[in-house]
Design a protein around this nucleic acid. Sequence first.
DNA 1: GCTTGACTTCAAGTTGGCTTGAGCTTGTAT
DNA 2: ATACAAGCTCAAGCCAACTTGAAGTCAAGC
Lengths: 142, 142
Amino acid sequence: MDIAEVAKASGLPASTLRFYEEKGLIQSIGRNGLRRLFNANVIERLALISLGRNAGFSLDEIGDMFRSEGLDINRTLLLAKANELDSKIKELTAMRDGLRHAAACNAPNHFECPKFLRLLRVAGKNRVRLVNKLKENKVKHT
Amino acid sequence: MDIAEVAKASGLPASTLRFYEEKGLIQSIGRNGLRRLFNANVIERLALISLGRNAGFSLDEIGDMFRSEGLDINRTLLLAKANELDSKIKELTAMRDGLRHAAACNAPNHFECPKFLRLLRVAGKNRVRLVNKLKENKVKHT
DNA sequence: GCTTGACTTCAAGTTGGCTTGAGCTTGTAT
DNA sequence: ATACAAGCTCAAGCCAACTTGAAGTCAAGC
């Protein structure tokens, strides 16, 4: 496939595809003159990248996951990411409940509604744990 | 409180507090000479901002929520945000399950594991809906 | 065999959310 | 009265993830 076909099939602009290739997230299988040629399986990979981005992973993190496929480090990395997502899910759930309550509540302002504050405090607790984890990871990696 | 106290209590650097003030997310209650003075309730507000940021809201979105407090538009806005979070939660849950399965799975590569692909496809479907929503919102607002 | 339009590279620009630096002001302690 | 740590402003810088623009290349159709 040439870049235009991949762009159409994936919904991503050609510029993004070149950028991802440069970053090592996808590979072209060769060239026709100057023009890149891609294998059809790049579409699936791009879908995975979009999914990962949407779940809040950086391009570098996604690259790490791909690069360590099949390795043992991969399992560890994947589980760590899954746990991170668990914290995030709890936090978003508390936030969602907080917003729904705030919309329904008739306290004059949300800061004065104990239920709202309690819901958000739950989110806050998870947040702190998550932040600490991230910091630990940063320290480990540097 | 002066800015250093707020910084310490909130965990945010003074530069961020000035930046938030400039953006209208917080207000100082006056000055002592050049120095900003804050009301203690700014701490709660900053916690709310951090929470919102962590839940994926932009500073502008958070500002909108504050600015429309008590108004009817606020209820609508809050519920819309809560619904957005619902989509995001579903997506993250599918992603988490996908990652956990991938870590446990012994298919030679994840693209060949039907369970993994099915899990991610669920995430993908939610994503599409979310993206469309966001696009709609953008069109509406401009 | 020539045009043309889709591709190429490389550098620079964009956005959001801050941070940093230089140079100036001032409340507080000595 | 003076020193100075802590504030202040304003402009510029930084990072991620792209996008845009200019200028060049070339495969394919006529």
